[in-house]
Design a protein around this nucleic acid. Structure first.
Lengths: 123, 123, 123, 123
DNA sequence: GTGGTCTAGACCACA
DNA sequence: GTGGTCTAGACCACA
């Protein structure tokens, strides 16, 4: 369910965050579902537990998951998008950079929208 | 022409690369145009020359600019998009992450396409 | 394993790149093998770590080695020659120059092919 | 007759040396032939005269050309290869590096010998 | 412990 | 004046 690319320049803890969020959005993980414990996940994907911990902590801060003491970690019950101006600006920045990179491999606006639609279809 | 956001977590040399590419795409920098010399740009944006050098070197590797010995650095004459499977996969990855992040601030597909179109309009 | 000729006009970081590639081709370094860390190698050959870093970065770009975050640097698992027209042209250029230089020290075609065969035998 | 690639990382003066030697080996320039004067050549290929001068000086040191005061520069009358141990070692080094580079673009021994033969045929 | 980024500063070849 | 190489040293994120 969660696959890590150790060769990626993207930190492992960020990869975990993304995979968990992706699974939630895709409905593979539903509100109330229990996540594997830190140690469990660490042994499954053979990653240092500290790294899993860091990912879970960030996910909790984002209200994507909830830690219930003594019971475990669960997908948050109610998902309310939090409109965050800073975050929105960041997204625009990232999109601009994608557009620039796309241009340099010969991907134009229409092809980029195709890619975007394709990814949404997978969700 | 080239502005750096020192609060950004993105390395300075990467910011320079992006700004130069952006200026080329927007036509602000045209093929054959001379870029400021390493030392010049370093003093303009008060960054260490080594950092500028690193950015210029990567831009040269990407064939976006050309270094002519003892004369300076110039926007490459011929821009040919290089279709790179790896790079394309990377772009898709980035796009997927943007979509995930967008979802968490309540930005849906249509709004994201709006943002994309808006950025293209600036180019 | 890696020796530097400080009298050579060839930059140190390029010498390191060549020695590493040579060791990989000779099988002294095998896929998955760990390379000495940047600091380790720096202290072994008494070279500044930045210089080692530069060499390792170029080797990574060439897909000869892989950097795994926080763990170290390893010989790439899968070696796939990348057919690169530019690089091939460069090789021909170099070969032409060798032939010209050889002529001026009285080394003819047959002797040059002997030299070539001799080097291949060492690999 | 002499073409320069200003984008090459190879210094212009070295490129001139190589082209002149190449022309001599190919017989395009014969012993006793007059070379263009420094200023002439400088204006033909629009290069700084100092750069031409440097190339001619090195060619003279190698006994490939001769400067006759007040008359001009000529291809040396008698070509005697000078067996130079240092130079030979250098050639072997270069050959080794070519072999390493060739391996990384998928060019094996036989193909490399083909390339070598092909270049000799042009001479 | 691992590599990545950045600064300050020196020296050099080349044009 | 131009970029390239190298050193010394600091700080940082990641695992």
């Amino acid at each position: 369910m969660i696959t890590i690319d150790s060769r990626s320049s993207k930190p492992i803890y960020e990869q975990i965050i993304e995979r968990v969020k992706e699974n939630i959005i895709k409905g593979i993980l539903k509100p109330g579902d229990k996540l594997p414990s830190v140690r469990e996940l660490a042994s499954i994907i053979t990653i240092n537990p500290n790294t899993i911990s860091k990912a879970y902590n960030e996910l909790e801060r984002m209200k994507a998951i909830e830690v219930i003491r003594g019971k475990g970690t669960f997908v948050a019950e109610s998902f309310k998008p939090i409109m965050d101006e800073e975050k929105l600006k960041e997204i625009k920045e990232h999109m601009k950079n994608i557009i620039i990179e796309a241009h340099y491999v010969g991907v134009d606006k229409d092809k980029l929208i195709d890619i975007l639609n394709e990814i949404y279809r997978e969700f």
